[in-house]
Design a protein around this nucleic acid. Structure first.
Lengths: 303, 303
DNA sequence: CATAGCCATGAATTATATTCATGTCTCATG
DNA sequence: CATGAGACATGAATATAATTCATGGCTATG
């Protein structure tokens, strides 16, 4: 018996995650893909299996009888494999030496720093420096940095790029602010102050390009605040509307300190990647950090 | 913990097969890929794992300590998944109706027929007709056939193509024949009779194109035999050299009735595919047969 | 009944795996 | 030893598959 290409492994993995989180969209976020990708994958899996695995009728997504059986098998199998993979990692050579890491200011200060501790602990002989800055490419090229996490594209042949995660943005403001300014559509922003990371307001472009022409607001009352956390506090106090990475205001949205505006408008996303010089990317310490970062994104970063 | 893209599933599957069969080349054959593909896959897996999994020093390919542990996990996981997949198949709807299958004469008569019994037994309400012929495309297009297994390319937009397996060819003759004609290099074939499926000798082209110019034989003593099995018997009796699919003479080679000639020359391979009209490929009975055939190739077909 | 959330889908694109065409190395053999 | 066959590696080209993009449909909800 051949029994080989009976089921597609990556699709099974997606199915497993989907069954755990209970929604295509959530599964996509967890895996760092789009909802569409998950949908396509499940369609193919069901086609290959020849049976429906998901019950899409009800809210909240059920598994069919067959789906449930398959899920149990997945659980056992993937638990085993993950444990084995974990095990492999443990026996990896520890890195030594020094590693100079660069990252964007917002990402570096809020997200990156909160997740480096386990890596540092696992590699006590590795000295790591962090440099948070807007300009990361130049220092990387002149070897002042070894590894850089950035959201702007650097398509240079000497650089190796490894995708990390995707960052989505939201427009939000204090609930009272929305009432006061009667914010219904993007055009309503014309009348009210908006918080921007830069004085010129270029910060808002990622939002504006996603707004259809007839709804375009004419933003002119900018309040410049060159610090994301500060912007968030200002917005919560009702100083203006803001545009920020979704992850940075999850708590505020949860608590109701801020409300999301215009949910149907999706500002352009940032794709964060790891950049390294190809020659140095082969070094054990750089590979180790790369793998570590990739292992926790996007579930930890994304949102 | 994310624990997701830690190890690549398809590569793990390859690793598992590789460990079972003990050789890159054999693993490739089993999976219907090239040796190169297996090599690339294992290189990537080891890179991702950060540890060597294979011990390439000795003959016969060992696993390292880490490799052995990983293998055990794979065994458990894939056994589970395969069982679940098996299970899914069992509960598939049986096909009903009629299915008219076409195939090339040699493949159809020798291989296909030997593997259809389980499928027929599993689908008692399905009538299947087999048509073995050289010309398969025309009947398929005019709906005299529903599904066709062929080794010539039919790149038509109305047809759906599903790869099945790869067929390799060997040149062989009786041991005594080799001695008698002192067959050392392809050019030596000029002096002796060769068996051909057609009178003109076009049959031998797949061999000739693989021979470097300076070794080109000038074949002219053709013995035409329009039946592969008959050709094999003729060759075993020392009537001439023959060119046939490897699988068709495995036993003869094993027993020593025939010996392979010029092992360094690799005649062009045939890639067998299933062709169906796209509109009809969606029918349950056609999908069922397609999946069945794919599930037993190439391990059963290939060689 | 307009909207937001959730999933499906076809076409275009991107990423990835595979092949092709070599090269290297080792083992067996005359 | 020289030679050739077998087995694996490797870089570039290519084929294949996965993913995104840009939609559209459906269903609850206020």
């Amino acid at each position: 018996m051949a029994m080989d290409a009976l089921l597609d492994l990556p699709q099974l993995r997606t199915f497993y995650t989907l069954a755990q989180v209970g929604s295509f969209t959530a599964c996509a976020r967890r895996l760092g893909r789009t909802q569409s990708a998950v949908s396509h994958a499940m369609a193919k899996l069901e086609d290959l299996a020849g049976v429906l695995l998901l019950d899409r009728r009800s809210r909240g997504l059920d598994l069919t009888e067959e789906g449930r059986r398959l899920y149990q098998a997945c659980e056992q199998a993937f638990t085993t494999l993950d444990a084995a993979a974990e095990d492999l990692k443990r026996h990896q050579t520890q890195a030594r030496g020094r590693l100079r890491v660069g990252a964007t200011v917002e990402f570096g200060s809020s997200i990156l720093m909160r997740h480096m501790q386990p890596f540092l602990a696992a590699n006590p002989d590795l000295e790591i420096d962090f440099t948070l800055s807007q300009d990361l490419l130049a220092p990387l090229l002149r070897d002042d940095l070894d590894l850089v996490i950035d959201c702007v594209e650097h398509p240079l042949p000497v650089l190796k790029k490894a995708p990390l995660f995707r960052e989505t943005y939201v427009v939000a403001c204090a609930p009272a602010f929305r009432k006061a300014h009667r914010l219904r559509v993007p055009a309503d922003l014309s009348r009210c102050p908006v918080l921007s990371l830069d004085k010129a307001g270029a910060w808002w472009n990622r939002f504006l390009v996603a707004v259809p022409d007839r709804d375009q607001p004419h933003l002119d009352r900018f309040i410049a605040v060159n610090h994301v956390r500060a912007m968030i506090h200002a917005a919560a106090e009702g100083m203006g509307a803001l545009l920020v990475p979704r992850y940075s205001v999850l708590e505020e949205l949860e608590r109701g300190d801020l409300v999301a505006l215009f949910p149907s408008i999706r500002p352009t996303e940032d794709r964060f990647s790891i950049y390294q010089k190809k020659v140095k990317a082969a070094q054990e310490k750089q590979k180790l950090l790369t793998r570590y970062l990739q292992s926790l994104s996007p579930a930890e970063f994304g949102s």
